[in-house]
Amino acid sequence: MGSVRTNRYSIVSSEEDGMKLATMAVANGFGNGKSKVHTRQQCRSRFVKKDGHCNVQFINVGEKGQRYLADIFTTCVDIRWRWMLVIFCLAFVLSWLFFGCVFWLIALLHGDLDTDYKDDDDKSKVSKACVSEVNSFTAAFLFSIETQTTIGYGFRCVTDECPIAVFMVVFQSIVGCIIDAFIIGAVMAKMAKPKKRNETLVFSHNAVIAMRDGKLCLMWRVGNLRKSHLVEAHVRAQLLKSRITSEGEYIPLDQIDINVGFDSGIDRIFLVSPITIVHEIDEDSPLYDLSKQDIDNADFEIVVILEGMVEATAMTTQCRSSYLANEILWGHRYEPVLFEEKHYYKVDYSRFHKTYEVPNTPLCSARDLAEKKYILSNANSFCYENEVALTSKEEEEDSENGVPESTSTDSPPGIDLHNQASVPLEPRPLRRESEIGSRR
């Protein structure tokens, strides 16, 4: 089982795998120059863009038009607004034209077009017409509009002379109601789609790998820009990579689940303020055997998904993003964004995407760390350097704002901070800030 798991979770494809794949392509008759073999020097295209759209195009789909027309309502909801407006206008105009032609044909076959009612006051002739005051196609078209929109100006009306005319008036009224219901329903469904809710759900630009509770963890940050909550919010993550099976089958995008606390339930989050999602790199993680150097040379993509129900409509929305291997910062942490004021908490989104480097973060893999092949620094050293990194950030910001350097908390000259780390230190809580992250 261990060997199978290692093969499945191998992220960085070796040169031997690339040569094996190329040999397979030639042997199977696919070596026509169009096949692409992804190596370390040639990274694959992003499968999920940063804005959440999937970078996929469908080609050679059989009976595409028929399949889309069979699900016309979903098609109308998914198309762009400009095409929705075109369909909206065409549906009414074509129905008016169709029934206008029908009423014109009825008048033509009944002989109503030969009668001039402007110079004739004989009401008996008017009563013999199928539709009064309809003696041309324009008049028939206007009567069709008046019937379907129930305008009723009063000059044109159907008589009991022709039952077919009466039937067409009733039929057009029913068709008009159906068109109204369909168009209004599609427009309302399109307006109520929770897709735009994703514009106020954000992911951090970069993911980070750092120590948390004595273990290497992959972390990324999510935030909600609205005050309205995302009900039943939960997160998922998958690692996408290519691999070759033991039988020699090439899988271009193998999807591997990344555990973010599904078993323990901590994948469900209360997204009021930005939260750091934590994936513990343990023996079940696809990143277990990867060191910093392996991450730098790897070719994979981590897709992160945030799902929840919109509070206003109770409709489920899904926000997506992805991180390539070069977008994962090893040995970094996110800057705090949640600050405790006197009577409330304040979230500073200008710090949302910012990170700071944490010294002495192990550069080895989580496996080597678990097997004690890498000796961690003293816990006080880690905490102290973590505090120094934050303090230096604040000093830089104070210097930019014009604060005198004498007010900063610099260490005395001639003292090495790293050498001082081995000395037991008193706890130094942050002056006014605390970061709330997901705790395992």
Rank of each mutant, 00 (worst) to 15 (best):
Ile269Cys: 07
Lys34Thr: 13
Ala140Cys: 04
Gly52Phe: 01
Gln293Phe: 08
Phe30His: 15
Ser14Met: 14
Arg236Asn: 08
Leu369Thr: 02
Asp368Ser: 08
Thr6Asn: 11
Glu327Thr: 00
Gly185His: 06
Thr39Arg: 08
Ala312Trp: 08
Val48Glu: 01
Glu249Val: 12
Tyr68Phe: 14
Glu63Ala: 13
Leu417Asp: 13
Thr407Glu: 12
Lys20Phe: 05
His205Lys: 15
Ala389Trp: 06
Thr39Glu: 13
Val278Leu: 10
Phe30Gln: 15
Thr23Tyr: 05
Ile106Met: 05
Leu97Glu: 02
Phe58Cys: 14
Ser228Arg: 13
Lys342Gln: 05
Lys346Cys: 05
Leu218Asn: 00
Asn419Asp: 13
Asn326Tyr: 05
Gly176Lys: 04
Cys43Ile: 13
Gln148Asp: 01
Asp121Gly: 14
Thr75Gln: 08
Asn7Asp: 14
Ser422Thr: 09
Lys118Cys: 01
Val231Phe: 11
Thr276Asp: 13
Asp410Arg: 05
Pro362Tyr: 00
Lys190Arg: 08
Ser14Lys: 09
Glu311Phe: 05
Glu397Ala: 08
Phe339Glu: 15
Glu394Met: 07
Leu338Val: 13
Phe73Arg: 15
Lys50Trp: 00
Asn60Arg: 13
Arg268Gln: 11
Ile11Trp: 11
Ser377Arg: 09
Ser322Leu: 00
Pro194Trp: 04
Asp284Trp: 11
Cys76Gly: 14
Trp220Ala: 09
Val403Pro: 10
Glu133Pro: 03
Ile302Arg: 01
Gly152His: 05
Asn297Cys: 10
Ser291Cys: 09
His343Ala: 08
Ala189Cys: 15
Asp213Arg: 15
Arg212Leu: 09
His229Gln: 10
Trp81Pro: 02
Asn60Gln: 12
Gln172Thr: 03
Thr391Ser: 12
Val423Arg: 09
Pro163Leu: 08
Val170Asp: 00
Tyr349Arg: 14
Lys393Ser: 13
Lys292Gly: 04
Ser399Thr: 12
Leu425Asp: 15
Asp51Glu: 14
Lys128Arg: 13
Ile184Met: 07
Val86Pro: 06
Arg197Leu: 11
Leu108Tyr: 09
Arg333Trp: 13
Val37Lys: 14
Glu161His: 05
Arg46Tyr: 02
Val102Cys: 13
Phe99Leu: 01
Glu280Lys: 12
Ala139Trp: 00
Tyr250Ile: 15
Ile79Tyr: 05
Leu90Phe: 04
Lys196Ala: 09
Gln293Ile: 09
Val134Thr: 03
Asp119Gln: 01
Arg428Lys: 13
Phe98Pro: 02
Leu253Ala: 10
Glu396Phe: 06
Gly331Arg: 00
Gly100Arg: 00
Arg351Thr: 15
Tyr288Pro: 00
Leu253Glu: 14
Glu247Ser: 12
Thr147Asn: 01
Arg156Leu: 01
Gly2Phe: 02
Asp120Leu: 00
Ser273Tyr: 10
Ala210Arg: 05
Phe141Thr: 14
Asn60Lys: 08
Lys49Tyr: 04
Phe98Ile: 15
Phe262Leu: 12
Thr39Phe: 05
Asp51Lys: 12
Leu142Gly: 03
Asn198Thr: 07
Ala107Lys: 00
Leu417Ile: 09
Ile164Met: 07
Arg226Leu: 14
Asn198Pro: 12
Ser422Leu: 05
Ser136Ile: 02
Met24His: 13
Gly214Arg: 14
Gly52Gln: 02
Val208Ser: 00
Ile209Asp: 00
Phe300Tyr: 00
Val169Gly: 01
Ser246Phe: 05
Asn198Arg: 13
Thr409Met: 13
Thr391Met: 08
Ile258Thr: 00
Ala192His: 06
Phe203Trp: 08
Asn224Met: 05
Glu397Leu: 08
Arg80Ala: 04
Ile375Trp: 06
Met168Ala: 11
Glu283Tyr: 03
Ser45Met: 06
Trp220Gly: 03
Ile151Pro: 06
Ser10Phe: 04
Asn7Leu: 06
Glu357Arg: 04
Arg5Gly: 14
Gly154Ser: 04
Leu239Glu: 00
Ala233Thr: 10
Cys130Val: 01
Thr317Gly: 09
Lys373Trp: 03
Gly214Lys: 14
Ser408Val: 13
Pro427Asp: 15
Thr276Trp: 00
Glu335Arg: 02
Ala139Thr: 12
Phe155Ser: 09
Val423Tyr: 08
Phe171Gly: 03
Lys118Met: 02
Lys195Phe: 07
Arg156Ala: 03
Thr200Arg: 12
Val61Cys: 14
Val278Arg: 05
Val358Arg: 01
Leu218Glu: 01
Thr150Ile: 03
Leu329Arg: 08
His38Gly: 14
Arg5Gln: 04
Ile174Phe: 06
Ala129Cys: 03
Gly248Arg: 05
Val26Asp: 15
Lys36Asp: 15
Ser132Met: 07
Tyr356Asn: 09
Lys34Val: 13
Val77Pro: 14
Thr317His: 13
Ser246Arg: 08
Leu338His: 12
Ala129Gln: 08
Thr361Asn: 02
Phe98Ala: 14
Leu69Thr: 10
Asp410Ser: 06
Thr355Arg: 02
Thr361Ile: 03
Ser350Met: 07
Glu161Arg: 05
Tyr345His: 14
Gly111Met: 02
Ala210Asp: 12
Lys49Leu: 04
Ser264Phe: 13
Val260Lys: 02
Leu329Gly: 00
Val26Met: 09
Ala298Leu: 11
Tyr344Trp: 11
Pro286Lys: 00
Val337Leu: 11
Pro336Trp: 05
Asp254Pro: 08
Ser377Thr: 11
Pro194Asn: 05
Glu435Ser: 14
Ile183Met: 10
Glu340Leu: 06
Leu430Cys: 12
Ala181Trp: 15
Gln57His: 08
Phe58Ser: 13
Cys76Lys: 12
Pro413Glu: 14
Met211Thr: 11
Glu232Leu: 12
Val272Asn: 07
Cys101Arg: 01
Asp116Arg: 10
Arg333Tyr: 14
